[in-house]
Design a protein around this nucleic acid. Structure first.
Lengths: 332, 332
DNA sequence: TGACGTCATTGAAACGATTCAATGAGTAAG
DNA sequence: CTTACTCATTGAATCGTTTCAATGACGTCA
């Protein structure tokens, strides 16, 4: 099929070793031989077979990234950060979408292990730390993204979600609200859980403020809208005067439900704060106050750590925790 | 690092050939040997090195998918369709995001060629047909997605964008509109060009209807919003009474601009139709009329064709063209 | 002229799997 | 008891690279 290094060697009238040297150490080869070989490569359309190369060299230049929801802009931003950084290091990023399925997650990990990728960036869906530790033992490092390691044995790049929850609810309280609603779920998703517990902490120092939890099955626009319609239907006395949504997609869903109802104005009747500060937030119908996570930077950082571990297998695991930032817009 | 088939063989007290047989043709091996080997595999945590396997076997089970905008829901839907189909065939899909950059597109194609993937699904950014034809010669087939082949030598799965444009504008005209605006760009992107020329065709049979083109630099929410604000600022007499947006992202941007202005109501003052029917369209603030493309199905179909070509290198290129479908909602 | 060093090039081993002809043990048939 | 045959297992060749010790050509210097 494709021409091999052997074909190139024959065409150029040199040995395979020389061709390989032209490819990898051109300084060791005389200039005219280099020209001859380069010419042969061009005329045959030769492309180095990375499979064989890697087999011998043992190093791969591919980074695998596994995300739980490829449709969430937060993750595409993360990926963009990682891709940019990879490009400057001469690496490539391939993505897999686990769609929050443990089974798919495992399949992809199998694939990447079989392919002996250089490393794995992962925002885990299921419980995979054990598996990742084993991968590491076999020379494939990984970095958790948007989630800290529970064992502490893996590197991670995350955001202090409890702080984010605190900041969000403090902001609502400081702007005079006292009946807070939290919308998000499932509640056993670590990110959601932490944001909620941060929200609860904020309440501790503010007696007289209440918090109601409205659970969703996922953090999507549709789920947000569904809960929003429930809230619209509530009696005025039972209705929260401020809502903290577990992410911007949910917040946008809520917003849509509220806009469809003439008796609820945002932020007058209900203030609304989201999470992630996706690109869409500032251009929502009511520009959305949100908690910004430095998604691009997180992607970059994660890739750097991963690369460092790939180069030095014995490096200590690092845990980088970014601080979230409040971005105030019209919705509060 | 990782244990190899040799380690397994030593551990189990058999030859490497036998281990390989257990892996690939267990029927040729006696049951107790199978057990012994499987035990060894388990205790050592052996995972087959796909790199070496592929080197010898020459076949890969990885499909590469290259999209021009990983943040556009239409493409994530396409990918989902392909992934689902791949899963049923026991294949894996890895994704690369070209971000509309020819350079990145080329880098990814290099990577995938070096990795000798089984095939490539691509929604091309630049002009890559030549390159893809060469890949095919070397045994790596590809299928164009959301764009027909200009040379006719490559398989493709696309949608009749001219028909889509016609349908959209006919719908606007039939609902009594006569000053149509087209918003989208860049105008040299094939999809945009075709939708616009379909729109123009619809005008031919309806004298008295006008079409103004508002070009954007990309089909994004922000660009839609920008143009929307321009339109809001127009004199009532110069303002279109219906707009056909090149995709739903642009339509949503327009919608946001219009909602922010009290003197423009959708659809009363301006009717609005988008394209793609992304998940977000029905839950937009004014549910959006759109032209549906069967994105999931397209992804599936593309993957099937690709797989067929991977199995039979001499198969004729197929061009599948889906028909778009009008989905009427409140915005028109 | 002969010994030596430099430099470009070569050829073979190695990576980890698969494949296949050859081997060997065991069984059935004559 | 030999022959033929089956079935499980083995060992070597192979895929396309990289690496490295060995080779060889050439020029320098004594």
């Amino acid at each position: 099929m494709s021409p091999s290094i052997k074909d190139v060697a024959a065409f150029a009238g040199v040995s395979v070793g020389t061709v390989s040297n032209v490819l990898n150490h051109p300084d060791r080869v005389s200039p005219d031989t280099v020209d001859k070989v380069r010419g042969a490569i061009k005329s045959l359309g030769f492309v180095r077979n990375d499979v064989a190369r890697h087999l011998r060299a043992g190093d791969s230049r591919t980074i695998a990234m596994l995300v739980m929801d490829a449709a969430n802009p937060f993750f595409t931003d993360l990926a963009k950060g990682a891709e940019d950084q990879a490009a400057t290091l001469g690496l490539s990023v391939v993505m897999g979408n686990t769609a929050e399925s443990s089974e798919r997650e495992n399949n992809y990990l199998d694939l990447f292990e079989e392919q002996r990728v250089r490393g794995v960036l992962i925002s885990p869906s299921g419980d995979v730390e054990e598996r990742l530790l084993q991968l590491k033992k076999f020379g494939i490092p990984s970095v958790l993204v948007d989630r800290a390691s529970t064992s502490g044995k893996l590197s991670s790049v995350s955001v202090d979600d409890e702080a984010g929850g605190r900041i969000a609810v403090n902001h609502l309280i400081e702007s005079g609200r006292s009946r807070i609603g939290f919308v998000g779920g499932a509640l056993d998703v670590p990110q959601v859980r932490d944001r909620l517990s941060g929200a609860r902490e904020a309440l501790d120092s503010h007696p007289g403020v209440s918090l109601d939890v409205y659970e969703t099955s996922a953090t999507t626009v549709l789920e947000g809208r569904r809960v929003g319609e429930q809230i619209v239907a509530l009696d005025t006395s039972a209705r929260p005067d401020a809502i903290f949504a577990a992410n911007d997609l949910v917040a946008i869903g809520l917003l849509q439900a509220f806009m469809a109802s003439p008796q609820i104005r945002v932020p007058d009747d209900i203030a609304l704060i989201g999470y992630d500060d996706i690109d869409f937030a500032p251009s929502a119908i009511v520009p959305l106050t949100s908690i910004r996570q430095p998604s691009r930077l997180m992607g970059q950082t994660a890739l750097d750590i991963l690369n460092a571990e790939a180069l030095d297998g014995s490096a200590q695991p690092q845990e980088v925790v970014f601080q979230p930032e409040l971005i105030v817009r019209s919705s509060t």
